[in-house]
Design a binder for these strands. Structure first.
Length: 300
DNA sequence: AATACGTGGAG
DNA sequence: TCTCCAAGTAT
């Protein structure tokens, strides 16, 4: 299907040109985008950016790479150190998976982040998005890099709806593949540029269409910017959930370097049943290590 | 396919 | 204040 789509003057080619020019002029300067940063830096950033905003990632990212400049540096440390360094980025299982991925890289890839998409996908914590992102951002390959930003940009620009589906679909993936420029280098630039457009202009809440480089080509805008129609998005409550309890427990364990008596953890949460469940869950996830004499610590 | 999984800033 | 939501993955 490609040939017609990519002729000069075709709708997609025009879209590509507009977004790429906009990116060249408006891209944020981010440390993992420095060409000298390398694949490991890209990989660390991608793990941290899974569901966590750029602003909160920045300081943790800097400290992480300073301390563990190569996968082998991280792999040589206990997983608990990764959890501690993860600080308050949220979803600390990502820290554990990044640590496990670093070990896998040492064992299976000689300590170098693999450039093969399938090899990336086989690493702990690397899913379809992250594998494509590393392959594209770090190695300049041609992949559809489909995150929430890209899904939203494509939903609006091409499908003409206000919001993408609540969860990623195969249709999203197909659409992204269809929209991917044929040329490898252009595809890699498009991947990061379309994501950046979603992050800065084509935002979820209040899109800045007045500043958008493709507003004249956007199917949603051309349709009169119709409001979102679809199932209501379930606003997840956090107060009172096991997640909150886990967060509190882990915060205590992160702050203590040695063994923590269970009594100190008990102070985190009133409800005994829920507290025990949360602690058991942390142990089951490998985020906490139980010790003799009713003590706990981060995994070694 | 639906659900679990943290945290905190912005509007 | 309170809701929304931020470069997803694993089960």
């Amino acid at each position: 299907m490609g040939s017609v789509l990519y002729q000069s003057g075709s709708p997609l080619a025009s879209l590509h040109t507009s977004v790429l020019e906009w990116y060249d002029a408006n891209a944020r300067v981010l440390p993992w985008r420095d060409p000298a940063a390398g694949p490991w830096a890209v990989m660390v950033s991608e793990f941290m950016l899974q569901q966590t905003p750029v602003a909160r990632v920045l300081p943790a990212y800097q400290r992480w790479l300073e301390r563990w400049p190569k996968p082998a540096d991280l792999a040589a440390e206990p997983p608990g150190e990764a959890v501690r360094a993860w600080d308050r980025l949220g979803y600390p299982r990502r820290a554990l998976r990044l640590h496990a991925a670093a070990q896998a890289i040492v064992e299976r890839h000689g300590g170098e982040v693999p450039d093969d998409h399938a090899a990336l996908l086989a690493l702990p914590g690397v899913g379809t998005y992250t594998a494509a992102a590393i392959a594209s951002f770090a190695f300049g390959q041609r992949h559809a890099v489909v995150d929430t930003n890209v899904r939203r940009v494509l939903a609006r620009a091409l499908t003409g709806v206000a919001q993408p589906t609540i969860s990623p679909t195969a249709a999203d993936q197909r659409l992204a593949v269809t929209a991917l420029p044929e040329d490898v280098r252009t595809a890699a630039r498009w991947a990061v540029a379309s994501m950046e457009l979603g992050a800065l202009i084509c935002t979820a809440r209040t899109p800045r269409c007045g500043d958008c480089p493709i507003r004249s080509q956007c199917a949603w805008v051309l349709a009169g910017s119709p409001p979102y129609e679809g199932p209501p998005r379930k606003g997840q409550t956090y107060e009172g959930t096991d997640r909150q309890v886990r967060g509190r427990l882990l915060a205590v364990l992160r702050s203590e370097h040695g063994a923590v008596p269970k009594k100190a953890l008990d102070a985190c949460w009133q409800d005994h049943v829920q507290r025990e469940r949360a602690l058991d869950g942390l142990v089951a996830d490998g985020l906490v290590e139980p010790l003799p004499r009713n003590q706990y610590r981060l995994p070694t």
